[in-house]
């Protein structure tokens, strides 16, 4: 019993405490190099081979920077806010089956937990913006909450067709269904598009980075933050990207499976499935970067229009259609 618990804790620590931050650091490097390549530059290529040690240099810089707490802030909330963003970002990943039979918490309500916890992250942003007591931060925080309301709705609704089709909220069984039948991308392509677009808004990435909006709001909600507190906001954004890429892969792209490929039993099968999953996630992480360095930021009212007038009705239509198909044409 105790070993069981200890093993689970170790598992959680390895994945959430070690792999995710490392991947986030790698993403920062990838972001800078990919953006550079897309702009005909080279990007950071000096520290280590191909600049791979650049994140370490960045982290060292953040650690040794002076941690300024401005005099005009609400100290308690100000200090708490980065953690309120960071912790949900870490928790959400725990339900994702990242290899065969490997998830930190294989819950039956997996995807519900994702939505419940990932929406908590926005509190951190809003509170950080409010506690900073500066107009730019406040704008950023308010925008974050408004944006979250309009997109979280579409995000959650776009997943409902999946459960209508697979009949389960456990991510593991969603993957199993896809391995047996077909990647959900094909029957539910509109849901995939809506989920993808909403996840960009949810992670505050371009083209929906209105809470940050450096051209309008200096740096948005983290204007007043420096040193490690800023770094934690920063890390949370990248971990969120990883989580949502993992979710897209799990929900629409067959998770850790490949069609026409029987995974061998035992350890090798698990490792192979993990590699397949990592490759798929990497593609979607790249897509995050690719989109960021291609599209300009949506104007705030356009963003609201898209959320409420396009994606929400589209989701509802999709749900009704899927339900109809399930009820009359193809009852499972």
């Amino acid at each position: 019993m105790i070993w069981d618990v200890l093993g689970k804790l170790l598992h959680a620590f390895l994945v959430v405490g070690l792999v995710l931050p490392l991947m986030a650091a790698l993403m920062v490097w990838a972001e800078r190099r990919v953006s550079a390549f897309m702009q005909d530059r080279l990007g950071p290529n000096r520290v280590g081979p191909a600049g791979l040690l650049q994140p370490i240099a960045d982290v060292l810089k953040f650690i040794f920077k002076e941690d300024v707490i401005p005099g005009h802030v609400n100290r308690v909330m100000y200090v708490l806010a980065p953690l309120m963003v960071f912790v949900p970002a870490l928790i959400v990943f725990s339900v994702v089956p990242y290899a065969r039979g490997m998830a930190i918490a294989p819950l039956n309500i997996g995807i519900l937990l994702v939505f419940a916890v990932s929406s908590l992250g926005v509190y951190g942003i809003t509170i950080g913006g409010w506690a900073s007591n500066s107009k730019y931060s406040l704008y950023g925080g308010v925008r974050a909450s408004a944006q979250m309301i309009s997109y979280e709705l579409a995000l959650s609704l776009s997943v409902i067709p999946i459960f209508l089709v697979t009949g389960s909220m456990n991510l593991e069984s969603v993957v199993a269904w896809q391995a047996q039948n077909v990647w959900l991308l094909l029957p539910l392509f509109p849901a995939f598009i809506i989920f993808l677009v909403s996840s960009y808004a949810e992670t505050n990435r371009l083209p929906f980075d209105c809470p940050e909006a450096e051209t309008e709001l200096v740096a948005g909600y983290h204007t007043e933050y420096s040193s490690m507190k800023f770094a934690i906001f920063f890390m949370a954004e990248y971990i969120n990207m990883i989580t949502f890429s993992a979710l897209v892969v799990t929900l629409f792209f067959g998770g850790y499976t490949l069609p026409f490929l029987e995974l061998p039993a035992g350890l090798w099968g698990t490792v192979l499935s993990g590699c397949i999953f990592a490759a798929k996630v990497s593609f979607f992480l790249f897509l995050f970067l690719w989109v960021r360095w291609t599209l300009p930021r949506f104007r705030y009212d356009q963003l609201m229009d898209l959320g409420w007038k396009v994606m929400l009705p589209a989701c509802l239509v999709l749900i009704v259609c899927t339900a109809g198909v399930r009820a009359f044409i193809w009852p499972g």
Partner: peptide, 15 residues
Amino acid sequence: IVKGLRLTIGHFFGT
């Protein structure tokens, strides 16, 4: 969007 994505990926692979 597709047009823009094509442009940037071209530059990416060029570099």
